[in-house]
Nucleic acid binder design. Structure first.
Lengths: 329, 329
DNA sequence: TTGTAGGCGTTATCAG
DNA sequence: CTGATAACGCCTACAA
């Protein structure tokens, strides 16, 4: 069913039908009604791809996410998809992985689909390979990087003060009498590096520079946390609290401590990050740094829509993280 | 950058460029190489939407999911997206909600995007409204319903024996000495109804018909479980085990029982369903019915690809659920 | 108020 | 082996 089919049935030309579909003025009321009736009768919907071809706007937005199975990624994807859809946009969600190469491939796919804009989720996208790819293939589409920033004219960044947030996590632990605070996680994303700097600042603030422990583990799964804390405690038996870069990792830590009968938080306190549901349901529940993924998603969608509607935005905005205090501290 | 631009630079016609891009035979090796070099040099990628227009195949697949934030939904979406992408397809993931109306709207969006196929995730899509919408707007595209079936020529169904699985859950609880087994959850999806029938069959098998308790709660969130079990126990103090239709709900149940100091599973045993990560990390961890979402996703993608490649499939296949026994039973 | 013609980027068909 | 042409479904000047 095309506009020509409808036009034929209505005894008018295709352009008239097109005008009715797009609510253009200058159509006799009678004609308009007749066509609208036909449109409904035949369940006609315009082919968005054909439209995109002539309008040079596909109404397609690409969402690049390392892994949709991560709760905080899917939380964000959910709000973004909903919000974009309200504006008539459709979301192409790709699992771009954690490697620069697969990220680049995903960008290529989006180029091919001629998306009107892109939302990159996570600071992992803040790297040279992605920047190069965007510079090469995505010079005109607006791009929002959630939790990071890239210095390109069409890239908007939403930053979250995870650095300061982590520092406040140290404040919290210090106030509970903890002095031997360890930091667990790898430093292979800008986000994690920021967290670590915050940790360092916090420790220095209290003159605990000597007590700093950066315990690097490979992954962010709960098994990494489990094995990590096991090794950490064997090497540093005096540790009295652990800051994990991810709730999921903290879950593994909690499990190990529970198995050993170590009292949380009295003997060892634990904190996670991301405020995912996981932290709510462990026993004890996990104090976490809410890095505002929902707000970030809403804002990312908003910025993109503004841009596409010709409005201007600031290139960089900052959101403030918040500590959610639970039983583990 | 279009094929005309490339053609001009190469001093050939657009059709020749098109042939090279699509690896068609009958091009002089020399010409082919020259064009390929240009293609690479200018980072050319064909416009998939324009291609779709003439090929009548968009290489777009719609994935309808009630809510991507659910772990077992995102697990499935993840494998489907990955697998489809390998074949050059792009996934449009829509949160279709739990209401028939929003599901219908989502189908309309997919029609407009001219997707080549659809994957419906969850038995909630097995309803008249969706069937009507598919019959009206999606007569030619192949459709796979994960965890359900609709009697339309182009709809394939992947069924999971949750009924029998739930029955085996009763077996398990019975073998642990439980006799007052309650079933918690609403019956508003075919899947949950199947589970309930399985529960009934199990109870009848052991002559426990008198002890059957269907405790309906509105949602599937952990709060529903928490409040639900509270009320359940006040009404039926002799309950010694609870089968929940969702892990998330079981999480709430566990939390309430923990707060009361009730021993799990000695005093009250608990089971969930879906084998999500949630059940692994509670204390105690939750015995669950793995309804094979990963396998379902892989199979759904496979069936769709086969169909689009002109191969035939059975209209209905059945996957077998599996009990994952953990600490809560 | 409505119709005609041209074009968006690509592929397929038919000539040459 | 290669090029011209029409077509996919839609929209927008321009003309009537």
């Amino acid at each position: 069913m095309t506009i020509y089919d409808i036009a034929e049935k209505a005894g008018v030309s295709a352009s008239t039908v097109s005008r009715v579909i797009n609510n253009k003025p200058g159509i006799k009321a009678e004609t308009r009604e007749k066509i609208q009736k036909l449109l409904k009768e035949y369940n006609y919907t315009p082919d968005e791809n054909a439209r995109g071809l002539v309008n040079k706007a596909t109404k397609l937005i690409g969402i690049l996410i390392p892994d949709i199975r991560n709760n905080h990624h899917s939380d964000l994807a959910y709000v973004v998809e909903k919000k974009l859809r309200e504006q008539g946009y459709c979301s192409i969600i790709l699992n771009a992985g954690y490697e620069h190469k697969t990220m680049a491939e995903s960008i290529q796919i989006l180029e091919q689909r001629k998306v009107d804009g892109i939302i990159l989720v996570g600071s992992a996208f803040q790297n040279d390979r992605v920047e190069k790819e965007l510079r090469q293939r995505m010079t005109h589409a607006p791009i929002v990087l959630a939790n990071g920033y890239l210095d390109l004219a069409n890239v908007h960044g939403i930053l979250i003060d995870e650095r300061n947030g982590t520092k406040r996590l140290v404040d919290l632990l210090y106030s509970k009498g903890k002095r031997h605070i360890a930091f667990m996680g790898n430093l292979n994303t800008p986000s994690n590096q920021e967290k670590f700097y915050g940790y360092e600042e916090g420790m220095e603030k209290y003159g605990l520079t000597e007590n700093k422990i950066l315990f690097q583990v490979s992954g962010i799964e709960k098994e990494s946390g489990y094995r990590g804390v096991k090794q950490l405690l064997s090497e540093h038996p005096d540790v009295d609290s652990v800051i994990c870069v991810e709730d999921l990792m903290a879950v593994g830590v909690i499990r190990y401590l529970n198995e050993l009968g170590i009292k949380i938080p009295q003997q060892i306190a634990v904190t996670g990050m991301n405020n995912s549901i996981l932290g709510e349901i462990t026993f004890p529940s996990i104090t976490t740094l809410d890095n505002k993924m929902i707000d970030t998603g809403l804002m990312a969608a908003q910025i993109l829509m503004n841009y596409l509607n010709g409005e201007n935005n600031a290139q960089k905005v900052m959101l403030f993280s918040e500590i959610i205090e639970r039983e583990s501290t």
